[in-house]
Simulated assay, not measured.
Amino acid sequence: MSQLHHRLVGKLALETEVGPFLGDTRIRLLEAIERHGSISQAAKAVPLSYKAAWDAVDAMNNLADEALVTRTTGGRHGGGTQLTDYGRKIVAMYRAVEQEYQDALDRLAARMGEVEAGDVRKFQTLLKRMSMKTSARNQFVGKITGLREGEVDFEVRLRLDETNELVAVITRESAENLELAIGKEVFAFVKSSSLLLLTDPNVRTTARNQLWGEVSHIHDGPVNAEVGLTLPGGKTVTAVVTRDSVANLGLSLGSRACAVFKASAVILAVYA
């Protein structure tokens, strides 16, 4: 029987504790945006669905220190999409590191004959277990700016950027397990179904989190619609509301709206 040879062929992926940040598909999307100046044309070139392309751009902008992609709505040509200088640098760096990564895999593959097949399978299982995805549509990262301890709960204030801040309420036990402290970087998750949308700035609500922005996309479904808001700092937040709510609020691309959600709806995570 001939010897089984293993060859490692991989795609470079930059991961955060909340899931993928950059990978081959997202890099190709960024490169297509640079070529076409249109997210719809870029999505076709990858290919991705239009919604998946929007979701990827939102996720990258939310997790990056600076926006990778900027968008404009309306106008004579219906708006456009383009990479920022930071986005171009990220693409160039990714492609350079990708080549180094593959070279390293090739060197490792040359030594795979020394490794038992069972060890390879265990290694593959470990990689699978270590990967993590979340169903939360809204994912943010920021540093803790405030902690207030109660008898049962902890109130945690998280700075997203110069304009926006989140408030989360978690149990004392969770705060201790996460070892929270002022200045510590944490991740925040909020399900899109936990968000409400408002357009009247005079409406009062008990919800601690109120993020104002401009409607950047609306994806209609049979009953509900997914509405994305771009915040002043470039980050985005997504809510799922009924189609009737979209009509009643008069939501359209470029209109102002506020995403409202309770502090108890925010889930926090930290580096292990």
Rank of each mutant, 00 (worst) to 15 (best):
L147E: 02
R204S: 11
Y101H: 08
V260W: 04
D220Y: 14
L12S: 10
M112P: 11
L166P: 00
N224C: 05
R111W: 06
V120L: 08
N164W: 00
W212Q: 11
W212D: 11
G19Y: 00
A263I: 09
G221Q: 02
K128L: 13
V141S: 01
A32S: 07
A104P: 07
R208M: 15
A52N: 08
K51C: 10
Q210M: 06
Y101I: 05
G250V: 01
S131C: 11
A225R: 01
A53V: 07
L30A: 09
N61M: 06
A259W: 01
E100S: 14
E100T: 15
Q3L: 14
A52L: 05
T134N: 05
D58R: 13
L180I: 02
P201I: 07
S38V: 02
A59R: 10
A181C: 05
D55T: 12
V266Y: 02
L211Y: 00
A207G: 04
G183Q: 03
A175W: 09
V141Q: 00
Q41C: 12
G80H: 14
T25S: 13
H6P: 11
E226N: 00
D65K: 04
D106F: 11
Y101F: 07
C258H: 05
K235A: 08
M1Q: 08
Y86A: 03
S193T: 12
A239S: 05
A207Q: 04
G113K: 12
R88L: 06
G221C: 04
I33W: 06
L178C: 03
A109F: 10
S40K: 13
D55P: 09
L12M: 11
T25H: 13
K122L: 15
A136E: 03
V215D: 00
S252T: 05
S38W: 01
